[in-house]
């Protein structure tokens, strides 16, 4: 499956990155989506989860918000022609070495922060279903999400699990979510209240 670019990198660190995109992109990013960005001159791919989407305003837009009977042409001008500052923040949850070296097999993932962040203006792609399935074969990225200070960790983890389940055949989804719940029970054994809240968010 060919993935469609959904934006370009604005700023980044090893812990995560922020990319910009315009509203009319065909694949509008959503919260909890798995995305990938090239790093180390294309020798690696950083895998991340979208945890925040900010649509900035400016004084011009503020003025227009109050205008009565705003016709479509004004709205389309603002959305398509002006630089629409949609900023999407991503939490890095792993990376894949040798991503740019070709070959069809999905290479193994490392569930840790990447050695280098992506570079400004790099294209960001949404992960294809097979990539999501491969990345979530293991749950080692849970700890990075649960320990995140910037992202709403529990909401993000639950959203990512719902997406990962949806990327699997229907008959495999319940087993996947059950196994994810078991892993969370291990990680949050000392915080039963948080565990219960989290499990409620993604149970089938």
């Amino acid at each position: 499956m060919t993935s469609i670019p959904i934006g370009r990198m604005l700023r980044s660190s090893t812990a995560g990155f922020t990319f910009g995109c315009s509203v009319p992109e065909p694949e509008v990013p959503t919260f909890g989506t798995f995305v990938k960005a090239p790093a180390q001159r294309g020798q690696a791919e950083v895998i991340g989860l979208i945890y925040d989407i900010v649509i900035e305003d400016d004084p011009f837009v503020r003025q227009m918000v109050a205008a009565p009977n705003l016709s479509e042409a004004y709205i389309e001008d603002q959305r398509q022609n002006r630089q629409v500052p949609v900023e999407v923040s991503v939490l890095a949850v792993g990376y894949q070495n040798g991503a740019g070296l070709g070959g069809h097999a999905i290479r193994p993932y490392t569930y840790a922060l990447p050695p280098q962040p992506p570079i400004t203006l790099d294209h960001i792609h949404q992960c294809a279903d097979d990539e999501v399935r491969a990345f979530t074969e293991r749950f080692d990225y849970f700890r990075l999400v649960l320990d995140s200070r910037d992202a709403p960790a529990d909401e993000l983890l639950a959203a990512s699990l719902r997406r990962a389940a949806a990327a699997r055949p229907p008959e495999a989804r319940a087993v996947f979510l059950l196994n994810a719940g078991k892993e969370l029970a291990r990680l949050l054994a000392m915080d039963v209240v948080r565990l219960e809240n989290l499990l409620r968010r993604f149970r089938p």
Binding site: E72, A73, E76, D77, Q80, N81
Partner: peptide, 14 residues
């Protein structure tokens, strides 16, 4: 420059 086509829903041409 901008071309604003009033009465159409098209985005203006800039």
């Amino acid at each position: 420059s901008i071309v604003f086509r009033h009465g159409l829903a098209d985005a203006p041409v800039v």
